[in-house]
Simulated scan of single mutants.
Amino acid sequence: MNIGIIGAGLSGIVAARDLVRHGHTVELIEKSRSVGGRLATRRIGDGKADHGAVYFTVRGEALKQDVADWIERELVRVWYADPYPRYVAIDGMNTLAKHLAEGLTVHLSERAEVVMLENETVVVKTDVTTRHYDRLLITSPLPQTFDLLTDFAVDPALRELTYAPTFVGLFEFGSEITIGHEGILDTDLAPGVLKVINNHQKGISATELVSVYMDESWSEEWYERADEDTLREIERLLQSVTGSAVIRSRQLKRWRYAQATDVWAEPYYPLRDAPIFLAGDVFLEPDDASGRTRFESAYVSGLRVAEAMR
């Protein structure tokens, strides 16, 4: 089959790898300049900072087997274990996504705009061209997905799932900064601050780059404000951790759909009247004990939807 996948985040990449391995022709359409989605790493000067997923954990056997292979290939390592291992990509989370996408056909900087059905063929019109597929998988955040599916019936309960935004401030320091024992603080922080990460201590940056993640309620409250005002306030809150240490540069990242406030208790969703499937980290297996979106839920969703599409 000729299969299209909208979104080259973890779910899309995992699904594509499985489908290609079983002999199907697969194309990924990605609006960004790089694969990975929230497996995101930014270069700042001579350093690197993760500003999406910080680390990932492993509960199920499927991901455990792949992680063992990634460790063998020196793609990931254990950052710290308290009480269970937190895994990080050796050279930044986006580097892992790029390794996993090697050999796949990916159309970067191409935005899907319309999805329609012509006879038994799924037609995807993008800002570049028109593509035709036997089956289509969409892994983008649901609000963006539904913008593409205006002519298709979808369970109303799925449309009611909502997302919370997250701000991430990225700060480059001119001198050594120690954040906790392992390069992370996620307790006893100023109100609004979810966690603070030192990417140098984490092992991915040659320079002192600190990522400050704001919690959902703070990010929602500040989302419509000017970037400069938002960044200034994050810096003020960060100083409760770093004191008067000199900051060389600062940047802000907005994640509009960072975390689903609700989840779907199936690992994927097939449209009833079209060969179109939805997947992503919001789609959890029914027995998922964590009940929240994360790296592993995206990975498992990609595996399960590929099985269904095959």
Rank of each mutant, 00 (worst) to 15 (best):
E216I: 06
E160V: 00
V193Y: 09
H200Q: 14
G60L: 06
M214G: 02
A260R: 06
I247A: 02
G60S: 13
I177R: 02
S240A: 15
D155F: 05
G23V: 10
L149K: 06
S240Y: 14
R17K: 12
N2K: 15
I29C: 07
R236D: 07
T126L: 09
F173H: 12
A68C: 00
V168E: 03
L96M: 06
P85W: 04
A306I: 10
S244R: 07
V78H: 10
V128T: 07
T130N: 07
H22R: 14
T57E: 10
D288Y: 06
L142C: 10
D50E: 03
R17L: 02
G23Q: 04
A226S: 11
N199T: 03
R33Q: 09
P267I: 06
R77M: 08
Q251T: 09
F277T: 00
D91P: 09
E235Q: 07
I29H: 02
P286Y: 13
S109Q: 14
L284M: 10
N199Q: 03
L238Y: 04
E224G: 13
S34V: 04
D188V: 06
A258S: 14
W79E: 08
V20F: 00
A40R: 03
D155V: 10
A190N: 11
D186V: 03
L108K: 10
V154L: 02
I13C: 09
Y299C: 01
V124G: 05
Y268P: 13
F173E: 08
A226G: 10
L39M: 15
A164F: 12
L194H: 14
R159P: 02
I6H: 08
Y55R: 00
V263P: 05
R111D: 09
E27Q: 13
R272S: 15
I234V: 11
A298F: 10
R59S: 08
T139E: 14
S205P: 12
T129I: 12
E216P: 00
R250D: 04
L189Q: 14
I29V: 13
R254F: 06
V122K: 06
T105G: 00
I179D: 08
T126R: 08
T57Q: 12
N94A: 02
K64D: 10
E27M: 08
R135N: 12
L28I: 04
I6Q: 07
G302A: 11
D18N: 07
